[in-house]
């Protein structure tokens, strides 16, 4: 809106109006934030967004399946043969190349999200041609490091964020 008045300098009146307007905008934005933030995960959801799992009762060669953020997690205690098997294939021409050592914190323990990276079905443990998992939906095979070996899945099974609280307790998330 162009002003045809003679004084081009901003007047005290303009300063007042601009300040008031600025306050109004800040006020409106401040009110808007809580109304949007309420959509974010609430405290009760965040409280179960990390879980602690007691792994002391898992025998070598067996696994535990737990739920984390609504998804299944496989915690697998690998035997020395299984670890060797996983590392042997490190340098093969894999669909999603990754060394086994980059997928574990302690070689004995493999922690992966049990969701097929193709279209989201849950692969079945101890099945498939690679000693790992087999997804029945479209035939993806994962090995004993959770890497995709055969089938339509594009990437390896996801490794969730986790840490060893102690030798018998891991915290996921």
């Amino acid at each position: 809106m162009s002003d045809t008045l003679d004084d081009d300098k901003p007047t005290r009146r303009d300063f007042l109006y601009i300040t008031t307007g600025a306050f109004g905008v800040v006020g409106a934005a401040s009110v808007a934030w809580p109304l949007i933030d309420q959509l974010n995960p609430d405290a009760s959801v965040k409280a179960v967004s990390t879980i602690e799992v007691d792994i002391s009762s898992i025998e070598p060669g067996s696994f535990l399946k737990v739920a984390w953020r609504g998804k299944p997690i496989y915690i697998r205690r690998r035997t020395t043969e299984e670890i060797a098997e996983a590392e042997k294939d490190d340098n093969l021409n894999l669909p999603d190349p990754q060394k086994d050592i980059d997928r574990v914190q302690k070689k004995e323990w493999l922690v992966v999200v049990g969701v097929c990276t193709h279209l989201g079905c849950i692969p079945i443990a101890n099945q498939g041609e690679y000693e790992g998992w087999f997804c029945p939906c479209h035939g993806s095979h994962y090995d004993i490091s959770g890497r995709i070996r055969k089938g339509p899945a594009p990437t390896n099974l996801e490794v969730p964020p986790y840490e060893f609280v102690s030798d018998s307790l891991i915290k996921i998330g």
Partner: peptide, 8 residues
């Protein structure tokens, strides 16, 4: 629990 739930 809800973020700013008490406020709303």
């Amino acid at each position: 629990n809800v973020n700013y739930g008490w406020l709303i």
